[in-house]
Amino acid sequence: MGKVRIGIIGTGYIGNVHARIFAKDERAEISALYDIIHEKAEKTSRAVGGKVCRSREELFENCDAVLVCTPNKTHVEIAVDALGHEKHVFCEKPFAVGLESAKVLLEKAQNSKCKFQVGHNRRYAPVYVKLKEILQSDKPHSAHIKMNRGELKNPAWTGDPSITGGFLYETTIHLFDMIRFQFGEISELVAYGSQHEYPELDEFSIIFKFKNGFHCTFASSSDASWLFPFERMEVFFHHRTVLTQEMEHLIDSNGMDANFETFSWAMLEKEEKWGYAQEDKAFIDAILEDKEPPVTAFDGYKSVEIVESVYKAIRLGEKIVFY
């Protein structure tokens, strides 16, 4: 196989992030672009190349792999269509909105001969890779996790649940995937939510229990502030605390005194610091080496399951048990 021909559907912010990365990969080329706002695709093409297509069908005719970088609620329909055209698929998070549509896409992806990868980029971020290394050599007891935003106004659609599927799908799902990646499968959860600033539940407090006995608290606010770090994991061990600060730093305090060691990735380019470059490389690796991508359709499905379970727990006022 020669260069992997990449087609990108949706040339907004994240579509352009991926476009710039793939344009630098000698094993790939940007071959086709499609956006319902034609001018946006033309602008991307001027920067990274690629044929500007007038339809999805035209894009499918000019690529080997499709990146789904469109609004959340369109992901399933586009990804299923791409798989039907026998294209490898990289689907930005969320994998789907709602469990029923997630089940449809999961079945299609698992029955396809093509590769399917979900864009949970934080798994590749060096700060979380380092945390994973620590967890493999020491056993944690519990954790406190925070995933906040300062607002849902920029861009405006982030505050529109008819587009996002809800706040948990837009932002919090990143760390829902991360806790499963770091700590294992969830056994049960209880959740509380309230509505303050936006026309949906926008404040959440959750307690997770995992099948291995680990447990954690999880807070997520849509309108707290952008105070650093808006995203944080504090993991507690025997006489040890490991603290992450967004994708910038990891602080490891090991022992019975106040000493600590700091690991920093602050000087990395954002594409590498946030894991975008690594996940895109992994997608091309999976295609060329005919292997399973690191973040599978099943992983994407499980993140949707967590979101829906939190909403259900709040709606019913009951503990949710995972079987």
Rank of each mutant, 00 (worst) to 15 (best):
H239V: 07
R123W: 10
D138T: 13
V295Q: 03
T44E: 14
N62F: 01
A286S: 14
F228N: 14
I179P: 11
T44P: 13
L316C: 09
D35F: 08
Y13K: 09
A102G: 06
M147D: 13
A102E: 01
Q110E: 15
G300F: 04
F60Q: 09
A277Q: 13
F236A: 06
L201H: 02
F90T: 00
K281E: 11
L243N: 14
E203N: 12
E234Y: 00
F260A: 14
K270I: 10
E92L: 09
F263H: 12
S31T: 13
G255A: 02
K3C: 00
Y169C: 04
F230I: 10
Q278R: 14
R54P: 13
N148D: 15
D280E: 13
C53D: 08
D160M: 02
T171F: 12
L227N: 11
H238A: 12
D35P: 13
E92G: 11
E200I: 04
K103C: 01
K113I: 05
N254M: 07
S55P: 12
T11C: 15
G10K: 03
E92D: 14
F167K: 04
F260E: 08
E61A: 12
S221W: 08
I36Y: 09
F95M: 10
I78T: 15
F204S: 01
K130S: 11
